[in-house]
Design a binder for these strands. Sequence first.
DNA 1: TTGTAATTCGAACGATCGTTCGAAATCACG
DNA 2: CGTGATTTCGAACGATCGTTCGAATTACAA
Lengths: 218, 218
Amino acid sequence: MHLARGSIVAATSVLTRPRKQSRDATLQKADTLLAAAAALIAEKGFEATAIRDVGRRLEVSLGGMYYYFASKDDLLFQIQHRTFTALLAEQERVAEQPGSAEDRLHRLLVGHLAFFARHPNEMKICTFELESLKGDFYDRVLVVRRRYFRLVADVIADLTGRRERKPRGHDRHVTLFVFGMLNWAFMWYQTSKDGPVEAVAAEMLELIVNGAAPRKRR
Amino acid sequence: MHLARGSIVAATSVLTRPRKQSRDATLQKADTLLAAAAALIAEKGFEATAIRDVGRRLEVSLGGMYYYFASKDDLLFQIQHRTFTALLAEQERVAEQPGSAEDRLHRLLVGHLAFFARHPNEMKICTFELESLKGDFYDRVLVVRRRYFRLVADVIADLTGRRERKPRGHDRHVTLFVFGMLNWAFMWYQTSKDGPVEAVAAEMLELIVNGAAPRKRR
DNA sequence: TTGTAATTCGAACGATCGTTCGAAATCACG
DNA sequence: CGTGATTTCGAACGATCGTTCGAATTACAA
């Protein structure tokens, strides 16, 4: 039911179809299919991934896939919208806890990297395949992304102390720099090589707050 | 001639075929086709772009395209390899000029963003479609990318003063953070909104060197 | 102008893809 | 058990794509 905010196109899927009693196993299977699709799309790209192959990996026929998803575009939308909504919800809870601007930014960095470490396929898709979304799908994902941007931008505004009403100049750029660092992580981050996300987040926070140059005096 | 280091597959193209006398107009036309292809691929993605459409934009028949390029993969390789080689050459010249670590990093940031502003389509493709390259194509582009990474990493090692032989720990992460900021720029940078690249580079340098928090004392 | 190499074209092939559809199978429940 | 809704399947359609190939056309040197 809380999954019901799915596709808006005319075609139906098990996620959008009204039902007297949505069986739990069905929604669970939809989740499994979405995860398998995310793994394939993250590996080969959205356009290069065939719905046939997603089904094959879980032994679901091609026709069966269309019982769970209205279209291939709907599949991509579900992945991105669910992922970013979940990330936003987690981070909103993290941000509202008390602490200095530096503390809250630190927790947000850890939260983002930890979420990425838990859902690497989905997060990679959110970064690489945003522009593969069309029309309303694109718009609806953008709404969530913008709320997440504001969340981080507000904390960074506290940190710099400039306190622009809506970050348009300097603070906006710093926020975009931070998102650049975060989103580029999936190009290189490996737990075995780079340590736990907490360590990476600490390094990132140090750079954002104090920079990388050695202290001049004292 | 200097373009001759193209495809390595068995199939031939005008860029790789040996010729007694490569006519200048032909190589120039190949450049035009590559630029048109880059515009389309940057807009719709590599898999979603049809060679037919690239030709259509410049009124070249489908068969004609295969006179200039050995395959669709070769087309993508040419774009990425030429672009990154050109960027590396420019930045090597920038880096070897004298100055403090901060000065040289500043010039590298300006150089990168300026190159990006001059070739947004090609740079976007280098970021988004790296993993669309297959086999040898992927490897050969990676060689150039690694040289560029080292170039920036060395300057950053000077900046932090840690002087690790090969950046594996802290300096490596700082370098990856910097590349994240740079490569994320095409998601938001617009001259009209964000000012000239020199201004953005200055903000980026300030963050990298001193951080974003207000100076505690003095 | 003649001959040779370079360039362009158009048609065709095989493969793959997204989507549809109706029948079959399965499940929940009286 | 029986009945209706839910789920699964397999085949098929139309469209698009990368690639090949040989003929036709153009450009350049002798």
